[in-house]
Amino acid sequence: MDTTEIQTINSFYRFDSLNLIKGVYGIIWPLVPILTLVLGIITGVLVIVWLEREISAGIQQRIGPEYAGPLGILQALADGTKLLFKENLVPYRGDVHLFSIGPSVAVVAILLSYSVIPFGYHLVLTDLSIGVFLWIAISSIAPIGLLMSGYGSNNKYSFLGGLRAAAQSISYEIPLTLCVLSISLLSNSSSTVDIVEAQSKYGFWGWNLWRQPIGFFIFFISALAECERLPFDLPEAEEELVAGYQTEYSGIKFGLFYLASYLNLLVSSLFVTVIYFGGWNLSIPYLFVPDIFIRNKQGKVFGIITSIFITLGKTFLFLFIPIATRWTLPRLRMDQLLNLGWKFLLPISLGNLLLTTSSQLLSL
Rank of each mutant, 00 (worst) to 15 (best):
F220P: 07
E236N: 10
F232C: 13
F217R: 10
C227Y: 01
S222T: 08
G206S: 04
A237M: 10
K201S: 09
W207I: 01
Y202R: 03
F219Q: 05
E228D: 11
R229G: 07
C227S: 15
C227W: 03
F217L: 15
P213D: 12
P235F: 01
S200W: 07
K201V: 15
A237V: 09
Y202C: 02
W207Q: 05
Y202Q: 06
Q199L: 12
N208A: 12
P235S: 12
E239L: 14
P213E: 02
F216N: 07
A198I: 01
E226V: 06
I221N: 08
L234E: 03
I221C: 05
G203S: 00
G215S: 08
P213F: 02
R229H: 06
A237Q: 13
L230R: 00
C227L: 15
D233T: 05
G206H: 12
A198H: 02
L209I: 04
D233E: 12
E228Y: 09
F219D: 07
L230W: 01
L209H: 05
F216D: 02
A223E: 03
S222I: 03
I214E: 08
A237N: 15
S200M: 12
F219K: 01
F217N: 07
P235M: 15
L234P: 11
G206E: 07
F219L: 10
P231L: 13
E228S: 13
Q199H: 09
A225C: 10
E239W: 09
G203T: 00
I214N: 05
F217E: 07
L234S: 14
N208P: 12
A223K: 08
F217G: 14
A225R: 02
Y202P: 00
F216L: 13
Y202T: 02
S200R: 15
P235T: 00
E226R: 10
D233G: 09
F216Q: 12
E238H: 13
G206L: 14
I218V: 15
S222R: 03
G203Y: 00
E197Y: 10
